[in-house]
Amino acid sequence: MYTPPAFRDDDMDFLRASIRAAPLANFVTATAEGLFASPLPLLLDESEGEHGVIYGHLAKANPQCRVPPLCDGLAIFMGPDAYVTPAWYAAKQETGKVVPTWNYVAVHAYGPVEFFEDTGRLLAAVHRLTDHHEGGRVSPWAVSDAPPDFVQAQLRGIVGLRMPITRIEGKRKMSQNRSAADRAGVAAGLSSSERASDREVASLIPIAT
């Protein structure tokens, strides 16, 4: 990921939080048959390894899980993002030398890919992933709510994914390359937006001098 120094983020707590907060990631592998990419809900187990281990699953019919990767896999997690209009910059009135841009948070996690079909491991991964996404609900659904034979039939249609993270890159592009006045203008503009993501981006912009 191209990351100018001003936007590089090595705060592992923030990067892990960004991974946990991403409801859907893009999982990418390079193979002898070309690139494969699948949008997947993924779970980070922070208790394993130096940087944690990512778990998920793919449909068994998905060719990505049948073609061996030639190198480490890549999981792309996107955080809040927002369009930034030059109209918010103080510099617009001063020089007019401004252009639109986009502010965003991105985390790229790399590691060796393991696909597995063991029923016990699959069931454990599905339980954990479900519990993660259902945890905040008033009446959370559990895998055990479904008939056991139905669950077993569903497991036969998926392949598990395990990827220990060996390298992680973080990018927090939040107008750090702009003046304090420009950053304040962007934060004010995004704070007034009706989009929740815009307001979240506003809260991440460093507006202090």
Rank of each mutant, 00 (worst) to 15 (best):
H127M: 00
W141R: 12
P69D: 09
A25E: 15
T29H: 08
P147D: 09
L15P: 13
A61N: 05
P63V: 02
P41W: 02
I76V: 15
L70V: 05
P100M: 03
V105A: 05
C65I: 09
H133Q: 12
E46Q: 10
R8Y: 15
A125F: 00
L15Q: 11
S18V: 13
P86L: 08
A17W: 07
T29F: 04
S139H: 15
A25M: 14
V113K: 00
H132L: 07
T95C: 08
S38V: 07
G111R: 05
T85R: 07
L74F: 07
P23F: 04
F14R: 07
C71E: 15
A142E: 09
A21Q: 14
H132Y: 13
D72N: 12
W141V: 13
M12W: 10
E48Q: 04
A146R: 06
G49L: 01
P63Y: 05
A37H: 12
L43G: 05
P86V: 09
K97G: 07
N103P: 11
P147Y: 10
K60V: 12
G73S: 14
P23A: 01
P23Y: 04
E50R: 02
D72L: 03
F14M: 04
T101W: 03
V143S: 01
P39M: 02
D45R: 01
R8A: 15
P39S: 02
A32Y: 01
F27H: 10
V28D: 13
E48V: 01
A59G: 15
D118H: 03
R16P: 15
R137L: 09
E48I: 01
E33K: 03
G111K: 06
L123H: 02
A146V: 03
V99F: 15
C65A: 04
P68A: 02
D131S: 00
Y55M: 00
F27A: 03
I54C: 09
A22I: 05
P112Q: 11
V107R: 06
A146G: 07
T119M: 06
D145A: 02
Y104P: 15
A91D: 11
H57K: 01
P69L: 02
V28I: 15
A37T: 12
L44V: 14
A75M: 06
G135C: 02
G111E: 07
G135T: 01
K92F: 06
D11Y: 04
A125V: 00
V99S: 15
P148D: 07
C65V: 11
D13E: 12
A22K: 04
V138M: 12
D10G: 11
R16L: 04
C71Y: 12
L58D: 14
R121N: 09
A146T: 07
Y89R: 08
V98A: 09
